[in-house]
Simulated assay, not measured.
Amino acid sequence: MIRYGIVGCGHIAKKHVDAIAAVKGAELTAVCDKDPDRLEPFLQEGVEGYTDLADMLQSDRLDVVNICTPSGLHPALTIQAAEAGKHVVVEKPMALTLEDADRMIEACEKNGVLLTVVHPNRFRPAMKELRRKMEEGAFGKLSHANATVRWNRNQEYYDQAPWRGTRALDGGVLMNQAIHNLDLLLWMMGEVEEVSSYHATRLRNIESEDTSVSVLRFKNGALGVIEAAVTIYPRNLEESLSVFGESGTAVIGGRTANWIKTWNFEGVSEEETEKTVQRIEEDPFGVPGHQCIIQDMTEAVKEGRQPVVSGEDGRRALALVIACQTAAETGKAVKMSDLERKSKKAGDPQ
């Protein structure tokens, strides 16, 4: 059995509990939260509760630590777990700065432990089908792609927890809500070369942005548009990823990006297209994404391989968010190569 411990018993922790319970060969043995009252719903036979991570890490019944705390706390807790010799599953975003992400990756490599970042949307049936088409080259030469998140997070949502909407612990709509969609965009389109962006805090009383629009140029020459907002009235409207090429057009959308809305490829008959769309509609959600992440980590630990979603993958999505935010704040286009140089300089020991 691969034994898991969860740090942070807030909203997202239940998804981790359910995922661990559903995976053969995985077992929840510990939970940790500074507030002892928050431990209670997660305690069950064989599961120990801790209010201090250092104490939990001393347990000999622990292989993997799942970090489910506010985003700004991820780096320190990841490094602490890695230095104790524990593998790490960390919620998105893995960090709020590239320097912290690099420290996390370095700590895991140095201590010989695995690191995976929770980007579960890659496991959605429609997204796996889209990725297969990309790998087949079915789009031909790519022209552009759109990543859209039009959601509602009202003021009550932000008022429920003091960390939400802050720059230090939340990071804004791109960092906290849209980063999954950006991970998918990068997974499909490859690396970004340059970013221009605008963002604003239009409707919510928060420190970070609630609305953001960006334009990208990918290294392959294709263009991209990112639209992300938590201001949509009165509820979530859509999440979508659209990819356009010389021989293919695909749009995955819906309130969450789980359904094929458009699926046209050169040489593919209407009958075959309809079969693909129908197959996805019969099971648009598939195996829950968090369960896929835990399944993959469990197998990776047993097999001694890297997880499917690596720390480097999490870092790439983070870098794109930071590039968009930097471009918006400076009013200038940001080259990813310049962002990397600045990050490396900031991370170098003085």
Rank of each mutant, 00 (worst) to 15 (best):
S247T: 02
I294S: 01
S310P: 10
V215R: 13
G289E: 11
F285H: 15
S269P: 06
R316Y: 02
G311W: 00
C292R: 15
R217K: 07
I260S: 12
E281F: 07
A228E: 13
T262E: 15
I226G: 00
V213K: 06
E271M: 10
N220A: 02
K219P: 12
R279M: 08
F285I: 08
D210Y: 03
I252H: 00
R305K: 14
L223A: 12
F265S: 06
L237V: 06
W259L: 14
E303T: 15
V268R: 10
L216E: 15
V277M: 11
M297I: 08
T249R: 03
A250P: 09
R235G: 04
E282R: 07
V243C: 04
T249G: 08
E270Y: 05
V309Y: 00
F218S: 05
P234Q: 07
G253E: 14
I226T: 03
V215W: 10
D313Q: 11
V301K: 00
R305T: 12
A228K: 01
G254T: 12
G253N: 03
D296N: 09
V213R: 03
A229D: 13
K302C: 05
R217A: 09
W259V: 02
G245T: 06
N220Q: 04
T231S: 01
T298V: 06
V287E: 10
L241A: 01
S242M: 13
V225L: 08
A228G: 09
N258K: 11
A229I: 04
G254R: 11
I293C: 08
R217L: 04
G289A: 01
E271R: 15
P284G: 12
V243I: 15
G221M: 09
I232W: 06
V251D: 14
V301C: 12
V251T: 14
V230H: 08
G224W: 07
T276P: 00
E270A: 08
T231K: 01
F244C: 14
A250D: 07
I294F: 12
M297N: 09
P307G: 12
E272F: 04
P288W: 02
F285C: 11
E281S: 09
V301S: 02
Q306A: 10
F265M: 01
